[in-house]
């Protein structure tokens, strides 16, 4: 029983005669890992946006666990994404001036009046797991590798069933990138979450380090699988 059911998706941008993205179908099983690769401009980010409900498609269907994202309202997709998707992005998108712990908690804090104590201890646990020990430190003073690890902890806080990472190692040096890649796959496996990483970093694409992950190749808007 696939957890992702994507069919007949086509995205067109005005002024382009060819669709930016045309994917006849993709299914992912629960807990499955997939690496999405392809040259820049191939539509990777657009594809990830579709999967995480940041964008919706006019044609076709994207459904997770039977929930059709196209049928949800804008706020409904926000709610769904907050509950089910953990996002990690190339530029971290941490908020300077707030501590590592506050950054991890921020999305959840904005969703409710009172933050459950359990969530706070879970945030501290996750930060420990990704190796950030000084949780009160302002994120602006962290190294880039540390920043991305805080972002990983943030993505996992709500125990999402889906983790989506867009070039998570592209702006890191090799050692930090390796640590982040390992954390992402390791933590996704621990949580049993479905992981989709867009990257052309050999850390993810190399068969040796890829492990069981499926390799999806996106080229000129169409998807192929190795």
């Amino acid at each position: 029983m696939p957890v992702l059911d994507l069919r007949d998706v086509e995205i067109c941008f005005p002024g382009l005669d060819r669709p930016a993205l045309a994917v006849p179908g993709l299914a992912l099983a629960e807990g499955e890992h997939a690496v999405l690769t392809g040259p820049s401009g191939a539509g990777k980010t657009t594809f990830l946006n579709l999967l995480s409900g940041l964008e919706r498609t006019a044609r076709g269907r994207v459904a997770w666990d039977g929930v059709d994202l196209g049928a949800l309202s804008e706020s409904g997709r926000d709610r769904w994404r907050a509950a089910h998707v953990g996002l990690v992005m190339q530029d971290f998108h941490l908020f300077p001036g707030l501590s590592a712990l506050e950054n991890v908690l921020l999305p959840q804090r904005l969703r409710r009046f009172r933050l459950p104590v359990a969530l706070e201890s879970e945030a501290a646990r996750l930060l420990g797991r990704v190796g950030i020990l000084r949780t009160e430190q302002d994120v602006a003073t962290l190294s880039r590798g540390q920043m991305q690890r805080v972002a990983v902890a943030r993505a996992l806080l709500a125990r999402p069933g889906i983790i989506v990472a867009d070039e998570p190692t592209a702006s890191l040096d090799e050692a930090s990138g390796a640590a982040v890649a390992e954390l992402l796959t390791g933590l996704a496996r621990e949580a049993g979450a479905t992981l989709i990483v867009a990257s052309h970093d050999p850390l993810f694409t190399r068969p040796a380090s890829r492990g069981f992950a499926r390799l999806l190749r996106l080229e000129a808007g169409s998807l192929a699988e190795d």
């Binding site: 995480s52 940041l54 804008e74 706020s75 926000d78 709610r79 994404r81 907050a82 509950a83 998707v85 996002l87 992005m89 998108h93 921020l106 999305p107 959840q108 904005l110 969703r111 943030r154 709500a158």
Partner: peptide
């Protein structure tokens, strides 16, 4: 945009 993407309500 990032706030929204990470799940902050509109």
């Amino acid at each position: 945009g990032a706030l929204r993407a990470f799940g902050a309500p509109r």
